[in-house]
Simulated assay, not measured.
Amino acid sequence: MQVGLRQTPSPAYWLNWYTGQSSRNKLIVFADGTYLELFCWINTPREFYAWANKSPGLIDFALTAMPPSTAQSLHNSIMSRLRENQNGKELDLGYTLPDVGSRTRWDAVQVKWESSRPVTSNSLNRTDFPFLCHDVTPRTVRVPFDHKEKTTHPCGAVGISIVEVMVPKTRFDFFAKLYGYILGASPRIIDERGKDRCLDFEIGLPNQGLGPSNLSLRSEQDEIDRDWLRDRGAGIRGLVLSIGGREGHGEEALGVGGIASTISLKW
Protein backbone atom coordinates (compact mmCIF):
# COMPACT_ATOMS: atom_id res chain seq x y z
CA MET A 1 0.00 0.00 0.00
CA GLN A 2 1.07 3.54 -0.61
CA VAL A 3 -0.60 6.75 0.36
CA GLY A 4 -0.26 10.16 -1.28
CA LEU A 5 -0.05 13.30 0.83
CA ARG A 6 0.02 16.64 -0.95
CA GLN A 7 2.31 19.18 0.69
CA THR A 8 3.15 22.79 0.09
CA PRO A 9 6.64 23.00 -1.44
CA SER A 10 9.60 22.60 0.89
CA PRO A 11 13.18 21.74 -0.13
CA ALA A 12 13.27 18.98 2.49
CA TYR A 13 10.60 17.10 0.55
CA TRP A 14 12.12 17.26 -2.91
CA LEU A 15 13.49 13.94 -4.09
CA ASN A 16 13.31 13.85 -7.87
CA TRP A 17 12.73 16.41 -10.55
CA TYR A 18 12.79 15.19 -14.11
CA THR A 19 13.01 17.65 -16.96
CA GLY A 20 9.55 18.60 -18.16
CA GLN A 21 7.65 17.33 -15.13
CA SER A 22 5.49 19.58 -13.01
CA SER A 23 5.81 17.90 -9.61
CA ARG A 24 8.30 16.66 -7.03
CA ASN A 25 7.97 13.91 -4.45
CA LYS A 26 9.63 12.14 -1.56
CA LEU A 27 8.90 8.75 -0.02
CA ILE A 28 8.70 8.06 3.71
CA VAL A 29 9.29 4.30 3.80
CA PHE A 30 8.07 2.02 6.59
CA ALA A 31 9.40 -1.35 7.70
CA ASP A 32 6.15 -3.10 6.74
CA GLY A 33 6.82 -2.31 3.07
CA THR A 34 4.32 0.54 2.75
CA TYR A 35 5.17 4.19 2.30
CA LEU A 36 3.81 7.71 2.51
CA GLU A 37 4.49 9.87 -0.52
CA LEU A 38 4.94 13.60 -0.02
CA PHE A 39 3.97 15.36 -3.24
CA CYS A 40 3.97 18.98 -4.39
CA TRP A 41 3.41 20.89 -7.62
CA ILE A 42 6.25 23.03 -8.89
CA ASN A 43 4.56 24.11 -12.10
CA THR A 44 1.26 23.93 -13.95
CA PRO A 45 0.14 20.27 -13.66
CA ARG A 46 0.98 18.18 -16.72
CA GLU A 47 0.38 14.82 -15.07
CA PHE A 48 -1.68 13.36 -12.20
CA TYR A 49 -4.63 15.46 -13.32
CA ALA A 50 -6.98 13.91 -10.73
CA TRP A 51 -4.82 15.53 -8.04
CA ALA A 52 -4.58 18.95 -9.65
CA ASN A 53 -7.46 20.63 -7.82
CA LYS A 54 -6.94 18.94 -4.45
CA SER A 55 -6.07 21.18 -1.53
CA PRO A 56 -3.13 20.10 0.71
CA GLY A 57 -3.78 16.92 2.66
CA LEU A 58 -4.33 13.23 2.03
CA ILE A 59 -5.29 12.92 -1.63
CA ASP A 60 -4.99 9.35 -2.90
CA PHE A 61 -3.74 5.83 -2.19
CA ALA A 62 -2.74 2.72 -4.09
CA LEU A 63 -2.89 -1.04 -3.66
CA THR A 64 -0.24 -3.48 -4.77
CA ALA A 65 0.38 -7.23 -4.92
CA MET A 66 3.54 -9.19 -4.25
CA PRO A 67 5.07 -12.05 -6.31
CA PRO A 68 3.98 -14.43 -7.71
CA SER A 69 1.14 -12.03 -8.54
CA THR A 70 1.71 -9.72 -11.50
CA ALA A 71 0.15 -6.40 -12.45
CA GLN A 72 -1.86 -8.17 -15.13
CA SER A 73 -3.13 -10.92 -12.83
CA LEU A 74 -4.11 -8.32 -10.20
CA HIS A 75 -5.95 -6.30 -12.86
CA ASN A 76 -7.66 -9.40 -14.25
CA SER A 77 -8.89 -10.59 -10.85
CA ILE A 78 -10.35 -7.19 -9.96
CA MET A 79 -12.03 -6.75 -13.34
CA SER A 80 -13.43 -10.28 -13.16
CA ARG A 81 -15.06 -9.61 -9.78
CA LEU A 82 -16.47 -6.29 -10.99
CA ARG A 83 -17.98 -7.84 -14.13
CA GLU A 84 -19.42 -10.82 -12.27
CA ASN A 85 -21.29 -8.56 -9.88
CA GLN A 86 -22.80 -6.02 -12.27
CA ASN A 87 -25.87 -8.17 -13.01
CA GLY A 88 -25.65 -7.41 -16.70
CA LYS A 89 -25.53 -3.64 -16.17
CA GLU A 90 -22.88 -1.37 -17.61
CA LEU A 91 -19.85 -1.15 -15.35
CA ASP A 92 -19.83 1.85 -13.01
CA LEU A 93 -16.17 1.13 -12.31
CA GLY A 94 -13.28 -0.41 -14.20
CA TYR A 95 -9.48 -0.24 -14.31
CA THR A 96 -7.18 0.67 -17.17
CA LEU A 97 -4.75 -1.93 -18.46
CA PRO A 98 -1.40 -1.83 -16.60
CA ASP A 99 0.91 0.86 -17.95
CA VAL A 100 4.70 0.53 -17.58
CA GLY A 101 6.67 3.26 -15.82
CA SER A 102 10.41 3.48 -15.21
CA ARG A 103 13.22 5.68 -14.03
CA THR A 104 16.94 5.42 -13.35
CA ARG A 105 18.06 5.93 -9.76
CA TRP A 106 20.95 8.21 -8.83
CA ASP A 107 23.16 5.08 -8.64
CA ALA A 108 22.23 4.02 -12.21
CA VAL A 109 19.90 1.21 -11.04
CA GLN A 110 16.84 0.84 -13.27
CA VAL A 111 13.48 0.97 -11.48
CA LYS A 112 10.32 -0.35 -13.16
CA TRP A 113 6.68 -0.58 -12.15
CA GLU A 114 3.23 -0.93 -13.71
CA SER A 115 0.21 1.14 -12.72
CA SER A 116 -3.51 0.95 -13.40
CA ARG A 117 -6.11 3.60 -12.62
CA PRO A 118 -9.86 3.52 -12.00
CA VAL A 119 -12.18 4.41 -14.86
CA THR A 120 -15.54 5.56 -13.53
CA SER A 121 -18.93 6.75 -14.68
CA ASN A 122 -19.99 10.39 -14.58
CA SER A 123 -21.36 9.98 -11.05
CA LEU A 124 -17.97 8.93 -9.64
CA ASN A 125 -14.52 10.48 -9.39
CA ARG A 126 -11.07 8.95 -10.01
CA THR A 127 -9.96 9.38 -6.39
CA ASP A 128 -13.11 7.74 -5.00
CA PHE A 129 -11.17 4.48 -5.39
CA PRO A 130 -7.52 3.38 -5.08
CA PHE A 131 -5.27 3.01 -8.09
CA LEU A 132 -2.97 -0.02 -8.53
CA CYS A 133 0.84 0.11 -8.52
CA HIS A 134 2.82 -3.08 -9.02
CA ASP A 135 6.62 -3.31 -8.86
CA VAL A 136 8.31 -5.02 -11.81
CA THR A 137 11.79 -4.74 -10.33
CA PRO A 138 11.99 -6.00 -6.72
CA ARG A 139 9.95 -3.71 -4.46
CA THR A 140 13.01 -2.94 -2.35
CA VAL A 141 14.61 -1.27 -5.39
CA ARG A 142 11.89 1.39 -5.39
CA VAL A 143 10.76 1.13 -1.74
CA PRO A 144 13.79 0.15 0.40
CA PHE A 145 11.87 -1.27 3.35
CA ASP A 146 14.79 -3.63 4.01
CA HIS A 147 17.02 -0.63 4.83
CA LYS A 148 16.97 -0.09 8.61
CA GLU A 149 18.25 3.47 8.49
CA LYS A 150 15.57 4.53 5.99
CA THR A 151 12.75 2.85 7.92
CA THR A 152 13.72 4.08 11.39
CA HIS A 153 11.64 7.13 12.33
CA PRO A 154 11.80 9.36 15.43
CA CYS A 155 8.15 8.68 16.25
CA GLY A 156 8.71 4.91 16.12
CA ALA A 157 6.32 4.28 13.21
CA VAL A 158 6.79 0.89 11.54
CA GLY A 159 3.93 0.94 9.06
CA ILE A 160 0.40 1.80 8.04
CA SER A 161 -2.16 0.25 10.36
CA ILE A 162 -5.37 1.76 8.94
CA VAL A 163 -6.33 3.66 5.81
CA GLU A 164 -9.66 5.37 6.47
CA VAL A 165 -11.89 6.04 3.46
CA MET A 166 -14.97 8.23 3.81
CA VAL A 167 -17.94 8.04 1.44
CA PRO A 168 -21.39 9.71 1.44
CA LYS A 169 -23.92 8.15 3.79
CA THR A 170 -26.50 8.05 1.00
CA ARG A 171 -24.24 5.83 -1.14
CA PHE A 172 -22.55 3.81 1.57
CA ASP A 173 -23.88 0.41 0.45
CA PHE A 174 -22.90 1.13 -3.15
CA PHE A 175 -19.31 2.01 -2.20
CA ALA A 176 -19.08 -0.92 0.24
CA LYS A 177 -19.92 -3.37 -2.56
CA LEU A 178 -17.40 -1.87 -4.99
CA TYR A 179 -14.61 -1.84 -2.39
CA GLY A 180 -15.38 -5.46 -1.60
CA TYR A 181 -15.00 -6.35 -5.28
CA ILE A 182 -11.75 -4.40 -5.60
CA LEU A 183 -10.20 -5.95 -2.49
CA GLY A 184 -11.63 -9.42 -3.03
CA ALA A 185 -12.58 -9.53 0.63
CA SER A 186 -15.65 -9.48 2.83
CA PRO A 187 -15.80 -6.71 5.42
CA ARG A 188 -16.71 -6.92 9.07
CA ILE A 189 -18.99 -4.39 10.75
CA ILE A 190 -17.10 -2.12 13.13
CA ASP A 191 -19.86 0.31 14.00
CA GLU A 192 -23.45 1.00 13.06
CA ARG A 193 -25.30 3.96 14.56
CA GLY A 194 -28.43 4.52 12.52
CA LYS A 195 -27.05 5.30 9.08
CA ASP A 196 -23.52 6.10 10.31
CA ARG A 197 -21.70 2.93 9.42
CA CYS A 198 -18.14 1.66 9.37
CA LEU A 199 -16.81 -1.47 7.67
CA ASP A 200 -13.33 -2.86 8.05
CA PHE A 201 -11.50 -4.77 5.28
CA GLU A 202 -8.34 -6.66 6.18
CA ILE A 203 -5.51 -6.33 3.66
CA GLY A 204 -2.00 -7.77 3.56
CA LEU A 205 1.34 -5.99 3.63
CA PRO A 206 4.52 -6.43 1.55
CA ASN A 207 6.39 -7.42 4.72
CA GLN A 208 4.02 -10.11 5.96
CA GLY A 209 5.79 -10.35 9.29
CA LEU A 210 4.40 -6.92 10.19
CA GLY A 211 0.87 -7.32 8.85
CA PRO A 212 -1.95 -7.33 8.13
CA SER A 213 -3.34 -3.81 7.82
CA ASN A 214 -6.90 -2.55 7.45
CA LEU A 215 -8.95 -0.39 5.15
CA SER A 216 -11.79 1.24 7.07
CA LEU A 217 -14.75 2.46 5.04
CA ARG A 218 -17.12 4.86 6.82
CA SER A 219 -19.77 7.49 6.19
CA GLU A 220 -19.81 11.08 7.44
CA GLN A 221 -20.62 11.51 11.13
CA ASP A 222 -20.56 15.25 11.82
CA GLU A 223 -20.36 18.67 10.19
CA ILE A 224 -16.58 18.43 9.87
CA ASP A 225 -16.99 15.26 7.80
CA ARG A 226 -19.73 16.85 5.70
CA ASP A 227 -17.49 19.83 4.98
CA TRP A 228 -14.73 17.42 4.01
CA LEU A 229 -16.97 15.61 1.53
CA ARG A 230 -18.21 18.87 0.01
CA ASP A 231 -14.66 20.13 -0.42
CA ARG A 232 -12.78 16.97 -1.39
CA GLY A 233 -15.32 14.30 -2.30
CA ALA A 234 -15.17 10.64 -1.34
CA GLY A 235 -11.78 9.06 -0.76
CA ILE A 236 -9.00 8.77 1.78
CA ARG A 237 -9.93 10.65 4.97
CA GLY A 238 -7.41 9.50 7.56
CA LEU A 239 -4.31 7.44 8.17
CA VAL A 240 -3.18 5.52 11.26
CA LEU A 241 0.50 4.63 11.64
CA SER A 242 1.47 1.73 13.88
CA ILE A 243 4.22 2.10 16.47
CA GLY A 244 6.48 -0.93 16.93
CA GLY A 245 6.60 -2.63 20.31
CA ARG A 246 3.83 -0.56 21.93
CA GLU A 247 0.58 -2.10 20.76
CA GLY A 248 -2.70 -1.69 22.63
CA HIS A 249 -1.79 1.54 24.42
CA GLY A 250 -3.97 4.01 22.53
CA GLU A 251 -4.06 6.35 19.56
CA GLU A 252 -3.19 10.02 19.18
CA ALA A 253 -3.45 12.44 16.24
CA LEU A 254 -0.30 14.26 15.17
CA GLY A 255 -2.10 17.59 15.65
CA VAL A 256 -5.45 19.28 16.22
CA GLY A 257 -5.88 20.90 12.81
CA GLY A 258 -4.98 20.67 9.15
CA ILE A 259 -3.08 17.71 7.73
CA ALA A 260 -1.79 16.69 11.19
CA SER A 261 -5.35 16.01 12.39
CA THR A 262 -5.84 13.35 9.69
CA ILE A 263 -2.79 11.26 10.63
CA SER A 264 -2.60 9.35 13.91
CA LEU A 265 -0.05 7.23 15.74
CA LYS A 266 -1.30 3.97 17.27
CA TRP A 267 0.56 2.53 20.24
Rank of each mutant, 00 (worst) to 15 (best):
N125V: 05
F129M: 07
I190M: 13
R226N: 11
L239G: 01
P168L: 01
V167C: 04
V240K: 05
H134A: 05
G235P: 04
A157V: 04
I190F: 02
V240G: 01
T137S: 13
D200C: 13
R237F: 15
L132G: 02
G245V: 08
V143Q: 07
E220R: 06
P144W: 15
F201M: 09
L183V: 11
T170N: 10
D231G: 02
L124Y: 13
N207I: 05
V165P: 06
G209K: 09
I189M: 14
T152W: 11
S123G: 03
H249V: 11
N125C: 10
C133E: 13
R193N: 14
N207W: 02
L229W: 10
L254Y: 00
P130F: 10
G184K: 07
N125P: 01
S161F: 06
L210I: 05
L210H: 10
R230M: 10
I160M: 05
H134E: 09
G250R: 01
G194Q: 00
G248E: 09
G204M: 07
F131V: 09
R171F: 03
R230P: 07
R142D: 11
F174V: 04
V240Y: 01
P144C: 11
N214C: 06
S219A: 13
L239V: 06
K150M: 14
T152Y: 02
F129G: 02
G235I: 03
L205N: 08
T140S: 14
G233Q: 01
R171C: 03
D222C: 12
D191H: 12
G238I: 03
P130R: 10
Y179I: 05
R139M: 02
E202W: 00
P206R: 03
L239P: 01
Q221T: 12
T151C: 14
R218I: 01
T140Q: 15
R226G: 00
R142Q: 14
D200S: 12
L229H: 04
L178N: 05
E192H: 07
I224C: 08
P206G: 03
D231W: 03
R171E: 14
D222N: 15
H153D: 08
V143P: 10
G245C: 04
G184H: 05
E252L: 11
D135W: 07
F175T: 09
H153W: 15
S161I: 02
R246Q: 09
